[in-house]
Design a protein around this nucleic acid. Sequence first.
DNA 1: TAATTATTAGTACCTGCTACTAAAACATAG
DNA 2: CTATGTTTTAGTAGCAGGTACTAATAATTA
Lengths: 187, 187
Amino acid sequence: MKKIKKTERHQEIRKVLKSNPFFTDEELSEKFGVSVQTIRLDRMSLNIPELRERVKSVATKNLQKVKSLGEDEIVGELIDLQLNKNAISILQTDESMAFTKTKIIKGYYIFAMAETLALAVIESNVALIGVANVKNRVPVKAGEKLVAKAEVINKRGSEYFVRVWINVNNDQVFRSKFRLVSIDLEV
Amino acid sequence: MKKIKKTERHQEIRKVLKSNPFFTDEELSEKFGVSVQTIRLDRMSLNIPELRERVKSVATKNLQKVKSLGEDEIVGELIDLQLNKNAISILQTDESMAFTKTKIIKGYYIFAMAETLALAVIESNVALIGVANVKNRVPVKAGEKLVAKAEVINKRGSEYFVRVWINVNNDQVFRSKFRLVSIDLEV
DNA sequence: TAATTATTAGTACCTGCTACTAAAACATAG
DNA sequence: CTATGTTTTAGTAGCAGGTACTAATAATTA
């Protein structure tokens, strides 16, 4: 990388750290062909904290998001649960779940909400989807609060049928029927 | 906190750091009323890395997750496309998309693959889901390669009906009908 | 009581910094 | 071309939160 002006370097540093906050000052100094001290001064004037602080902030910030669509956890917040009977969860949507242009929530978030609620309502902690039968009428807009209700409608041995509805202000935006099979009993 | 046995303390440390990985050894030593050295030994035998490593791993994990199911990316790889007619995409599944215990792919990945392909096949780059009618028979296992085919079956004004099938080795694992509405024409 | 296990203390060293001082390199105006 | 200001570099001391190691002291158990 050749001689570039201070202001230009500042822009670049900002950009680089935005897309990848894990660079040390030393790595940046090599990248830009300046001394470590210069990078330090740059960070100072740009108000960019040190590596460890940046990493920490990424870690804490996203901890919440991960919980929402991470592991096998509930997508949405489980607010009522009667095992093997019924369950209710809510999900506050936001623009990060929507198509940028239309602000309409991507279908798979809604599907994921329904799926995880259907799984949560079954007592056996490992269950799998056999069949889903979905109807999704009205598009959901970013900012709307989804309320999902699940009800176990049938059980045959290790097989469960669960119906899930999702509403926004009492208007149904989604419904489906899930066939779940408990693994515990099968193996 | 009173005298507790080593093994018990180990369990507690594990639990505490699992729910909150941001404690320093010193904070832990105060919490458990033992010396910092003891906490170090504990971490060693439990194979728990130091604070900074824990924070870093949370940060990187989160960053990937946000990127993986974040953007408006195609879920799967688009390998053939005839606008407004049909399209094919493939998706190589892996364990990160599956439930840890059963290795069965989470339903919403499959749904997302179908949804994005249905959107891709329509020329207008902003289209939204009106209705989806889903059947999902066979569970997909981590490692299997999904092949999705989309076909526009009907068009009425700004409304499109798209059928999507997903196969694994010519066995249908999913099918659905999407109703899409082009925004360009509506607005 | 002796042997074993668990805990504590202490030292040297590491990374990735902050905070500071001071010198050198470069650019620009008079 | 020289004086002045800006930018960059160099170097030192110190900090947090460790690793890796040695050695001594408690506590437990045989």
